[in-house]
C-alpha cells in the first residue's frame, strides 16, 4: 500500500537516509526499529511530504506522491501520528479533533468520526472543553491518535507513540494500535521500544545509520542475534 523505493534524504551535508526501500502491505503492521538518529523519523517525514527527498520514489496506493505537499498526501488517506504528539496546546480538545477532519476527504463524515473517536477514547469526551495542553501525556497521545482518525486515514504512520509515557500507558498505547489494526487499519510503526513493536509486527525493518540493514517478519528480527545484542541488551 505504501512503497518506498531507494529513498535518499539529507539535511544539508548530513545524510539521514541512504537508499532505503520499504513496503507496507495493506492490512498489516509494519515496524521500523533502530536507534536514535537511525533515520526513522526522517522516513516518516519524507513519506508525509514534510521534507523533500533527494532521490527515490514514494508511492501510496499506486499513486506516486514523491514531492507532493503534505496536505495533498494527507487527503489521499495517508495519516500520521507524529513524534511529540504535535497537538494544538492552546486549543480545546474538541477543536483539535474537529481540525483533524478539516481535510476535504473527511469533512462530510466529521460528526460520525467524532462519535467513533469518543467511543474509542471516552476520556477525550470527558475533557472535550479542556485546553489540549493541560492533558496528561497519555491523554495527549490519545488526542493525537483521535485527531488522526478524524481525517479518515487508510494507513497511519506512528512515530514513537510510546515515547515519554509511563509503562502502563505504553501497554495501553500498543493495545490501541493493535485494536486499530484489528478493525482493518494498515499501520507503519516507528519505535525505539523494540520488543513491543516487533512483537505486534507482521513485517519489520531494522534501520541503521540511514540504511535498511535487515528486513523480515517481526519474529525473525526478534530472534536475530544482532538485534538482540544491539537493541535488547541480551
Amino acid at each position: 500500500m505504501l512503497d518506498v523505493e531507494n529513498l535518499d534524504l539529507a539535511y544539508g551535508d548530513s545524510r539521514a537516509l541512504n537508499g532505503v526501500s520499504l513496503s507496507v502491505a495493506a492490512g498489516t503492521i509494519t515496524s521500523v526499529v533502530g536507534g536514535n538518529g537511525a533515520g526513522k523519523t526522517s522516513l516518516i517525514r519524507a513519506c508525509a511530504g514534510m521534507v523533500p527527498a533527494q532521490g527515490g520514489r514514494i508511492r501510496f496506493d499506486g499513486t506516486d506522491i514523491t514531492g507532493w505537499a503534505p496536505h495533498r498526501i494527507c487527503d489521499l488517506g495517508l495519516g500520521q501520528v507524529a513524534e511529540g504528539r504535535q497537538i494544538f496546546p492552546s486549543l480545546p480538545v474538541l477543536d483539535n479533533l474537529e481540525l483533524g477532519a478539516a481535510l476535504p476527504r473527511a469533512r462530510k463524515a466529521a460528526k460520525q468520526s467524532l462519535e467513533k473517536v469518543f467511543a474509542l477514547f471516552p476520556r477525550l469526551a470527558e475533557r472535550k472543553a479542556q485546553r489540549a495542553g493541560t492533558l496528561s501525556g497519555g491523554e495527549q497521545q490519545m488526542l493525537a491518535i483521535g485527531r488522526c482518525l478524524m481525517g479518515l486515514p487508510r494507513l497511519i504512520m506512528f512515530d514513537e507513540p510510546s515515547l515519554g509515557l509511563a509503562p502502563a500507558v505504553v501497554k495501553e498505547m500498543f493495545a490501541i494500535i493493535e485494536g486499530l489494526h484489528r478493525d482493518g487499519m494498515t499501520v507503519l510503526l516507528v519505535e525505539q521500544n523494540v520488543v513491543h513493536s516487533l512483537k505486534i509486527a507482521h513485517h519489520a525493518v531494522l534501520l541503521e545509520n540511514g540504511v535498511a540493514a535487515m528486513a523480515g517478519t517481526g519474529a525473525d528480527l526478534l530472534a536475530d542475534d544482532r538485534v538482540r545484542q544491539a537493541y535488547l541488551g541480551l
Binding site: 514534510m50 496536505h71 497537538i87 492552546s90 477543536d95 483533524g100
Partner: peptide
C-alpha cells in the same frame, strides 16, 4: 469557523498543522 480555528492551530503548532494536512500556505 473551521478556517479561523485552522489559522489559530497553525499559529499554535505549525508542525502539528502540517501533520494533519492543513494547507499552511
Amino acid at each position: 469557523t473551521l478556517t479561523g480555528k485552522a489559522i489559530r492551530a497553525a499559529a499554535d503548532n505549525r508542525t502539528g498543522a502540517q501533520v494533519i494536512g492543513l494547507d499552511i500556505g
